[in-house]
Design a protein around this nucleic acid. Structure first.
Lengths: 148, 148
DNA sequence: GTCTTTGCAAATGATTTGCAATATA
DNA sequence: TATATTGCAAATCATTTGCAAAGAC
C-alpha cells in the first residue's frame, strides 16, 4: 500500500513526505473506524506532535483526490474518512449503515442497484456512473438496549 | 398546505408569524429547485426585505424538524432544501440524481430497496428505518453537449 | 400581559489560505 | 539548487447564539 502510494505521488511530481506517509498509515490502521479530520489529526499527533492541522487537511484532500480514501458525508453534515477498499477500483462505492441512536457507521458492499441504473436511464434519461446508498436505522446493540 | 402548517404550529404552542409563512411559501413555489439556505434567504428578502438571515435558518430548521421540508446533503457538503412531498409521510424518502457535470439535482421516488432491507436485517442484524439513495452521473443535457 | 420570535451583531467551528521557513529530489 | 510542502496564524464561510426590541395570542 505504501509503496503504491509513493509511486502514485512520484508519477504526479508530488513529494513523498513523512507527514503524507503517516496520515495514510493512520488511516490504513483504522479500517472500519470512519474517522473525522480532527480524529485523524489527533492520532497523527500522537506519533508526530509537530504536524499541523492544516497539513492533515491538505493530505486528506490529496488522498481523497487520489481515491485512496473515501469521504463520507452524513445527513447531519458530519464528514468522515476511511481508507478505500478494492471496490473503489471497480468504480462502485460501497454503502453505509448508520445507527440513528448511537451513530455507529458500518460499511457493506454489494452491487445493489444494477437493475435500477438501467431503469433510470430509460425513465429519466440519466446515465448513472456511481451510486451511494445510506441506510438509517438501529444497530443490534441499540436494539438490545431497547429490549431491556 | 398553509392551513395545515398553521395548525401544526398551534398544536405545538408555536406562533404563526409572517416570516414562517413566507419561508414555507417560497419553498412551496420552488418545487424541484432544491434551494440552499442563502437562495431561500434571497427569495424571501425580495418579498420582505426586513427579514434576517438568522430567522431564515431558524425557520428552515423548524420546517425540517416538522418534516415539512427535506434536507439534502450532497457529497461535497453542500446542503439544499426542498418542500416535502407525500412520500415523506410514508416514512421513506425519495431519492436523487446528481449530474456530476452541471450539478443539477433531480428527485425521483420509487421504493427501490424493499428486499434489501430484509437482507440487511438478516446479514447485518441492523433494522433499517429509512434509506437514501444518490445516483451520480450525466444528465441528458450534459450528454448532448458531449456528443457535439 | 405573557411568552415567543425576531433582527442584529457577535460568536462559533470547521476548513482554507498566505507566506516565510524547511524538506525533498 | 529549484520546487514542493510544511507549520503557523490569520482569513473565510456557513451556521448558530445572546439579547433587547417587537410581535403573537
Amino acid at each position: 500500500m505504501q509503496d503504491n502510494f509513493k509511486e502514485i505521488l512520484k508519477e504526479r511530481g508530488l513529494k513523498v513526505t513523512s507527514q503524507r506517509v503517516l496520515v495514510l498509515d493512520i488511516l490504513s490502521q483504522a479500517v472500519g473506524e470512519h474517522l473525522t479530520a480532527e480524529e485523524i489529526y489527533n492520532k497523527v499527533k500522537s506519533k508526530n506532535p509537530d504536524i499541523g492541522l492544516a497539513t492533515v487537511y491538505r493530505t486528506i484532500q490529496l488522498l481523497s483526490e487520489l481515491k485512496l480514501v473515501d469521504k463520507i458525508v452524513l445527513n447531519d453534515g458530519c464528514i468522515r474518512y476511511e481508507i478505500a477498499g478494492d471496490e473503489a477500483n471497480s468504480g462502485h462505492h460501497h454503502h453505509h449503515l448508520i445507527c440513528v441512536e448511537c451513530g455507529k457507521l458500518t460499511s457493506f458492499s454489494e452491487d445493489l442497484l444494477e437493475n435500477l441504473e438501467c431503469a433510470i436511464m430509460e425513465k429519466k434519461d440519466f446515465l448513472v456512473l456511481n451510486h451511494e446508498v445510506k441506510l438509517y436505522g438501529y444497530c443490534s446493540e441499540c436494539r438490545e438496549k431497547h429490549a431491556n
